[in-house]
Nucleic acid binder design. Sequence first.
DNA 1: TACCTTACCTATCGATGATAGGTAAGTCAA
DNA 2: TTGACTTACCTATCATCGATAGGTAAGGTA
Lengths: 205, 205
Amino acid sequence: MIGKQASDHRLMPDRVMQRREAKVAVIVESAWKLAREHGIAGVSLHALAREVGMRQPSLYAYFDSKLALYDAMFADGNRRLLQRLDLVKLPRDPRVALKKFLAEFVAFALEDPARYELLFERHVPGFTPSPTSYVLAEEVLGRVHKLINETGITKQGDIDCIVAIVAGLMEAQLSNDPGGNRWIRHLNRLVDLYVDDVLERSRHS
Amino acid sequence: MIGKQASDHRLMPDRVMQRREAKVAVIVESAWKLAREHGIAGVSLHALAREVGMRQPSLYAYFDSKLALYDAMFADGNRRLLQRLDLVKLPRDPRVALKKFLAEFVAFALEDPARYELLFERHVPGFTPSPTSYVLAEEVLGRVHKLINETGITKQGDIDCIVAIVAGLMEAQLSNDPGGNRWIRHLNRLVDLYVDDVLERSRHS
DNA sequence: TACCTTACCTATCGATGATAGGTAAGTCAA
DNA sequence: TTGACTTACCTATCATCGATAGGTAAGGTA
């Protein structure tokens, strides 16, 4: 139960519960700060505790394990991503809408390498999102799925390809040219190329 | 100096030197075994030493640090990859040759997830290949580069795209369907699609 | 034989994530 | 207001990790 937080506090009075959740938020925010400084795997519970003015064992009052902390960060990152995607004004044209949506997705992903490591790579040994947190990631993927569908692409294999292409460009960008655009500048062209090809193929069959 | 092995043994007599290198090879092989069992980041020096019949500090006679061990594994993996690629009989047709070469590359990459993590991902916190080892990785990339060139594709941006697409498919394959072919089956089609498009564009300009 | 190097060993270090058990402050019903 | 209970921390300690120091017996060499 990675995602489970310490004990069950659902019987707590609201006031106490809110204070507690606020503290969790502070801890997660500090964890992101440390992750940005030392990489996602470089977050140490001792350093994190010091950052929030505690001793290391006290963190276990808020998270059952270090992996549970990562799970909370995973959920937090995906929630922020969904918020950002909510703000995207989607044009009528499905193709333009898809590209605009993907551009925002990619911008979010690339702006914080440590967050990218946790949300989209598997750079934390042993970490797998809990079902509760994974639902958020599926929501993101579901929105991409929907927009791709609206361009007329419905086959799972074609959706897989587009997702893989986007991921490949992002991964190359962050690995070899973080902050630049050497790979990511090809995103729109590749999406157009692939979508055109699928539609062309479906027309001729 | 990540890649440096303990001290400088270049003044050793040949007999001793060979025995030493044989031992290094045994250690690296055992490390791969542990990596396959527990993931690349799950290799512990205590377990590795036990595996080769030593105590943990004795490994430091062969490697200056754990990262130096990873560097030796990185070089070893790339050497094996080059050996495999040497065996590929390349057809005349540049396009067919590229696809056959990439197929072998991908087959090698996917057959051992732990090796993939070390060679193609950055799943080991703090690890960067030493210049000496990185030369081997560049040799691999150089061969891909050459074959892509021979299809008539010369612009760096286009080469980047093909490499990113291949990497994206491999990464999705291993993350979501290891052992299967849900993503990788699209490799040839995507390469053809991209190469065709580049050649088409160059013809119309 | 005498000497030097090799190839290990034990003991120990600091940092890590995790657990056990204690205490003072906060909360709340009688 | 008091007394009981809970919360929110603490100190002390553990096993495991990579790493270092220093010792020793066997192998190789003059």
